[in-house]
Design a protein around this nucleic acid. Sequence first.
DNA 1: TGTACATCAGTGAACGCGCGTTCACTGATGTAC
DNA 2: TGTACATCAGTGAACGCGCGTTCACTGATGTAC
Lengths: 234, 234
Amino acid sequence: MNAGVSARELGRSSVTNAIKDAARRRLAAQGAARLSVRAVARDIGMVSSAVYRYFPTRDELLTALIIDAYDAIGAAVERADRGVPAPDLRGRWRAMCGAIRSWARKHPHEYGLIYGAPIPDYRAPRDTVGPAARVPVALLSVLEHGWTIGAIHEPSPTSSGTVTTALGHQLQAVAADLGLTAPPSLLLRFAVAWTQLFGMVTFELFGQLVGTLEPADDFFSATVDLMADFAGIE
Amino acid sequence: MNAGVSARELGRSSVTNAIKDAARRRLAAQGAARLSVRAVARDIGMVSSAVYRYFPTRDELLTALIIDAYDAIGAAVERADRGVPAPDLRGRWRAMCGAIRSWARKHPHEYGLIYGAPIPDYRAPRDTVGPAARVPVALLSVLEHGWTIGAIHEPSPTSSGTVTTALGHQLQAVAADLGLTAPPSLLLRFAVAWTQLFGMVTFELFGQLVGTLEPADDFFSATVDLMADFAGIE
DNA sequence: TGTACATCAGTGAACGCGCGTTCACTGATGTAC
DNA sequence: TGTACATCAGTGAACGCGCGTTCACTGATGTAC
């Protein structure tokens, strides 16, 4: 057999996907803490012990779901970015912010899985770090592009929120890690915009805006522009 | 018996507190989704059925913990506010933001209980709304005070992030509800600062800053000042 | 003040349920010669 | 191409466990007269 994929390999990957899909559906119904191997097996008509041929433990199933979720939101953001011409910095920022919010609203439990409280007794392995970085990296590409073409400038140094030495070092380390040339003062403002964005989406999804700013469409888009201004995105 | 509290009433409230304390300890170990009546009973040396004399259902125990958590963080913020002279707007803002972060770090699981993903199969009753409002109301008091004494001004209308009619109405409704006189443009900026603040604390607590901006002390305090600037807090 | 009755906190057994994981097994798919 | 053996997916029973909630009960506390 040399076609690259044997019947066994085909079956294996399709069953693996069926398990993950069922697990995602269970996630939506019960949340991550209560995700159970037996329920997933039941849903796809398998005996629970068979699932252990694919995921040797419940935690490894969770890890797979977490990585998939990070990759899915990361891909959605990257796709949104590619849909806008590179020099249109604000357009790209808006598109990516919008993609984050709509992915979150479409997949609230997967969002909760990655941005909600950690699952008790579960320790995320190193493998989640790369996928987790996709969203911030994509967002930062706007800032970096704007900075390199001279369209984004350092904020005036008279403003408060000074970058102390310790914070400056942290920001420089991040910049070095990602190969960015933008200065700490801009990276700080980016970090503010980034945390604001997720804070808003989290509040909307987890019910903190009920009865006040909900529906949050207008609040969201006004805020996205305010934060673009704040970070100097033209 | 007329001293106001009978032995029975005394016993009742002390057992109620013992149950809630044990439940809070369990929360820290296992998270809300896995909080179990039996484990709580075991911890305080009671038989599980006895707990039902105090909380007729697991959900009512959760509700009590949620209300207590909102009240605790609300009280912490109000206390921080009272520790600073009323006209020192930025000092009050800093103190309250710091109180939120340190309460969150001291009680991460209670924080997760109220600001994390909703608990599956649990529906929060109306009673949580009041306690939940304490923090935003306290934070808003700075803005309102500054506005009424003329120390905080409307942002220049040329900036983007325009307040559309729909959003304006939402903001006005909130203002009316809370008896605030500050204009929508300021309330919007406050809402941005509010969501940024909680987004940052949530990211820190839930592990999104690991390996980059952690320890987050400097990031936090720089950001608090940037957001005070942003909202026009002198 | 003393007695009779009502209220209530706490007990222990039981109900019916779901969980993660292991293990010896069957039968189908893949590999080597 | 055909046969013998190895690999692997899936089965079904079992282990030991914990869960929320109900119920009839005992004994202590509170109330009315």
